[in-house]
Design a protein around this nucleic acid. Structure first.
Lengths: 107, 107
DNA sequence: AAATCATATGAAATAGAAATCATGCGCTAT
DNA sequence: ATAGCGCATGATTTCTATTTCATATGATTT
């Protein structure tokens, strides 16, 4: 009934690891080991996250020597993050107890 | 690190039941039993879905006699669905084998 | 006010996805 | 060409979310 593409679009983003990767990449491209260091995650965990993000067109990866640099797909992510920021800002301002309402400004 | 509000925003939408509800509501308000009939889901399943959608500001519900009518939150959902439609259309057109690319036109 | 209809809710069972662990592959430098 | 570094991948375990089942609530009709 529902196209799987729609469900998977959200599943990909409904995950702390992948959201944190997006958060960091929203400030500029990074390599896998950069992401590991900044997030304190295992390399394998980050690679799995990036693979899923890439498979669904949220990020793109370039080989640079023996490292790989990942970046957000700007056409999709910029307007998407804007809508979500606005909603979370407006809707969760009262409800959410944590201080990190605007997560993209953090970390 | 990531505000829970952002993760839960996507978790709410990463589910067939809730997506199908949104799909139907995008054509106009419906009661719980309308949704049950059209989706072939148990009443309890639909109610659980609606509760989650309501808690996160995706839908609103009005009491109408002994029934309750639910509708999409238009300020959020219209621009959101637009972005996702475009991405899925563009990105999954080749990859997805199923015919239902534009799920909001279906069912 | 009792019965019934429409919906909500809690808890247990089930299904599904993520983290970890172990390993493999490709590039680079020596 | 081989050793080392950066990253990817597969399978298992672990964790989390959804479904189901049973029951409660609240409005309406008789």
């Amino acid at each position: 009934m529902i196209c799987h593409a729609y469900k998977s679009f959200f599943i990909v983003l409904a995950d702390n690891c992948r959201l944190n990767i997006i958060n960091l990449l929203s400030k500029g491209p990074l390599t896998v080991s950069d992401l590991c260091t900044k997030l304190g995650y295992e390399q394998s965990r980050v690679s799995h996250g990036l693979r899923t993000l890439k498979e669904h067109g949220f990020v793109v990866g370039k080989v640079k020597g023996k490292t790989r640099e990942y970046a957000l797909e700007p056409k999709l992510m910029i307007p998407l993050l804007k809508i979500i920021d606005e909603h979370v800002d407006k809707y969760h301002k009262q409800k959410c107890k944590c201080k990190c309402i605007r997560w993209r400004d953090m970390a």
